[in-house]
Design a protein around this nucleic acid. Structure first.
Lengths: 180, 180
DNA sequence: CCTTGGCATTTGTGATCACATTGCAAAGAT
DNA sequence: ATCTTTGCAATGTGATCACAAATGCCAAGG
């Protein structure tokens, strides 16, 4: 991946390509080695465990803040997204699965009215991007929506501790499988 | 603040100045309005409360992870930094106070061996920068080191719940005064 | 005196250029 | 045959240029 190549790919010059790459590096999605060559960051088990811990800290808090504001229309939308996730799983569409899965979380967290927390969470997602790709390639995809159903059920019941627990499970369960 | 002015200030051209500004914007330290003009971000009470909540979530976790690795030399260094903080408070050196205060936290968190968490925390500190500046200008500075002494004491005693509590108090206490 | 319209200056963005450094590869020596 | 060295191509960085848009100012009219 060269700056000139990226620029030519998107029909722009070097300058915007450099901007984008530097921003990705600043957010942790890419790591630049010495002499500025960019590379996908190394995915050590410690790093994965750490990022999963961050998700387990912040995302239940976001869900808890979204709970009082979650009305029925939102819950229905979440259930619809769950259906789309199952559809992607059936079609073995990995990237669609990951994208829709994150859309489920983002849709819920948007209701939390906590933009800084959401931005931090998305930063963590960005850093986990290659990891998720590797994870869901070797994962049995029929089990994950179970946690999502628990989340929706807790939202309907207004069960705040259950919601936090379901989030924590959903976040850590998948990533724990990768840290072997 | 113009890009050309920043560049001339540091003796470089527009390009590196633009890089730096865009990076600060990406990290939340500055906010660019429409048409790319940079400005210090608005500090609403909700935003301050949200950032304080993030600190209250992550920093006790970092301290808890640092606790098993905190040997005596580290604790002595923390106590020395505490002395420097008191010195800055006596000299009414606001910026030195804030800088040394953050150095106290960073020194502790470095032992947690959690670079991603530390990076996220520093991002939050960056976003709180102007707020801290406004806070410690109107604050009685003789009370804050009390929490730091609690932190050091909990480290010496190996008291993990006490450490978490002291961190949470230290983080939220100051910022709560500003959200009036 | 206030408001509004237009104009000039300024500013950010994107492109292109020049240069130093790195990486690769080919050729020669052991 | 393999290792080393040397040279070239390619890449990132910083500077400068061209352009479009926005901001501020000044004047003219109400």
């Amino acid at each position: 991946m060269t700056l000139r190549g990226i620029g030519k790919t998107f029909g722009v010059s070097m300058t915007p390509a450099r901007e984008a790459v530097r921003r990705l590096v600043a957010d942790g999605g890419l790591s630049l080695s010495s002499s500025g060559r960019v590379s996908t960051p190394e995915l050590s088990n410690e790093r994965i465990e750490e990022l999963a811990s961050i998700r387990a800290l912040i995302e239940p808090e976001l869900a808890s803040r979204a709970l009082p504001r979650a009305h029925l229309a939102l819950i229905d939308r979440l259930q619809a997204i769950n259906g789309a996730i199952a559809e992607c799983a059936a079609k073995h569409d990995d990237v669609g699965y990951i994208r829709t899965n994150l859309e489920f979380h983002r849709t819920l967290y948007l209701r939390a009215q906590a933009p800084a927390m959401l931005a931090l969470t998305e930063t963590v997602w960005l850093q986990l991007g290659p990891t998720m790709r590797a994870l869901y390639a070797k994962l049995n995809r029929t089990e994950l929506p179970h946690n999502h159903r628990l989340i929706v059920a807790a939202l309907r019941a207004g069960d705040e501790p259950g919601l936090r627990l379901a989030l924590r499970s959903d976040v850590t369960q998948g990533l724990r499988l990768l840290a072997v």
